[in-house]
Simulated scan of single mutants.
Amino acid sequence: MTSKRRVLIVAYDDAQILDIACPSGALDIANRYGAQPQYSVELGTLGRRAARSSAGITVGAGQGLETVAGRLDTLIVVGGIGCEDAAADERLLGQVRRLAGLSRRVASVCTGAYVLAAAGLLDHRRVTTHWGWGDRLADRHPAVAVDANPLYIRDGNVYTSAGVTSALDLTLALIEDDHGPTLARAVARELVTHLHRRADQAQISTFLAAPPPDDRLVRDLTGYMAAHISEDLTPAALARRAGVSTRHLTRLFRAYLDTTPARAVRVVRTEAAAHLVQSSGLSLAAIARRCGFGSAQTLRQAFWDHYGMTGDTMRRMPDMPPARVTRQRKTPGS
């Protein structure tokens, strides 16, 4: 290893430019905040060709993958709509396999997992990817244990992350692994981002998983609820945020979600807590606090009402249990 942490980001045509920018930008800030040893970030492509991103912006490569030699600290493969073509390119897969062998750790952003899986680097590992691509990845690579719920997953020295901006969460986790939480917090503050979202936080929540409600106010509030589960989400607080009366808010939720605001919040919090029960070692009391429940007992009752089982039973299950009742979207008048 050199005195710097050498990071190689692998790109290709129709890659998502944020998948390149999030890791490289965060590592650059880590350097400016005193990371020691510092990160040396390089962008590599086959033949050192410029990579045309899906946004139409072309990014020049600093390295041809074929010529990269010596030890790497971290190999990062980005995602994007070009991932399937990239995963079918045997020249690219051969270089990714070779470079993984030179690397201390390997990571993918979003659908970059398709490339790692096609290269055989994810077999018998638990991995994640963008929630909209998880089923296809699992069908194509049955030896890969795909869980499209968390923001990122570490399995040994292999890290995989969910869609697009979760690259930032992954990179902050890498910085924390390398340099500790103080530097990771400083980078997060500079980026004006969450400090930082936990790996086990679900990519999407209950009311976001189904087709979004037609009403913009309801749609915005369900997104807000999912992102602020530990905050004040009483009907009065939600109504104030939306600028409507609590009575009107309740009418809208009944019309578009077939439920009340309070019940919707309870479902969002319960399912977020269930993900934490399955993917973390936190106590039920700690999970209750993180997810906005008043006590562990309140959370236990919520689990029983929603899933018909206790948290202990859920923790022993290999997969997320189904809810007792799945509510369907309504169109007013239906």
Rank of each mutant, 00 (worst) to 15 (best):
R197I: 11
Q328Y: 06
G62F: 03
D147V: 05
H130M: 03
T313G: 06
H275K: 08
T45L: 14
A87C: 07
S279C: 11
G120T: 00
S24H: 04
G64D: 11
L172M: 10
R219P: 11
L46N: 07
Q278K: 14
D139W: 07
A210Q: 09
D169C: 08
T270N: 01
A273C: 05
V277Q: 14
R198M: 04
A21P: 04
H194M: 10
R6F: 09
T298H: 14
P150W: 05
Q297I: 03
T260V: 11
Y39E: 12
T270M: 02
V41D: 14
T171V: 10
Y256D: 08
T193M: 11
V115R: 05
A143H: 06
G112W: 02
R185N: 12
M314Q: 07
S283P: 05
Q278E: 14
R91P: 08
A69Q: 12
P23A: 06
T160Y: 07
H248E: 01
G79N: 09
A286G: 11
A202H: 00
D319K: 04
R219N: 14
I29E: 12
P142R: 01
D155F: 01
Q297C: 06
S283T: 15
P211T: 02
A272W: 04
L208E: 13
T58F: 03
E66P: 10
Y12Q: 00
L282F: 06
L276D: 13
I76P: 02
S205V: 02
L252S: 02
N157M: 03
F293E: 04
D214E: 03
R6L: 10
T171P: 09
I29F: 05
G308D: 10
Y224H: 15
S166A: 15
D135R: 10
H124W: 11
P261G: 12
S334R: 00
R290K: 13
L102V: 01
L102Y: 04
V115I: 15
T234D: 11
L195K: 05
T259V: 07
S24P: 04
E231C: 08
V267H: 08
Q38T: 12
Y39T: 14
T326S: 09
D178G: 08
N31T: 08
R185K: 13
A242V: 03
V187K: 11
R105C: 07
T193A: 14
T165M: 13
L72N: 08
L174I: 13
S54N: 00
P23R: 07
T111K: 00
L75F: 08
D85A: 15
V277L: 14
W133S: 13
I20G: 02
R263K: 15
G163W: 06
A226N: 15
V146K: 05
R251S: 11
E190L: 12
Y39I: 12
A55R: 11
V96A: 00
D139C: 05
L116F: 10
D258F: 01
A107C: 09
L122K: 09
A226G: 14
P322K: 12
T259L: 05
L102N: 10
A209F: 07
G333E: 01
P321K: 00
L221E: 15
H248A: 04
L75W: 04
T310G: 15
L116D: 01
D139L: 02
P213N: 04
G94E: 00
P321D: 00
Y152K: 01
R251T: 06
Y152G: 00
A69L: 08
A51F: 00
Q95D: 02
A86I: 06
T74N: 09
A202C: 08
M225C: 15
T2K: 06
Q38N: 12
G34N: 07
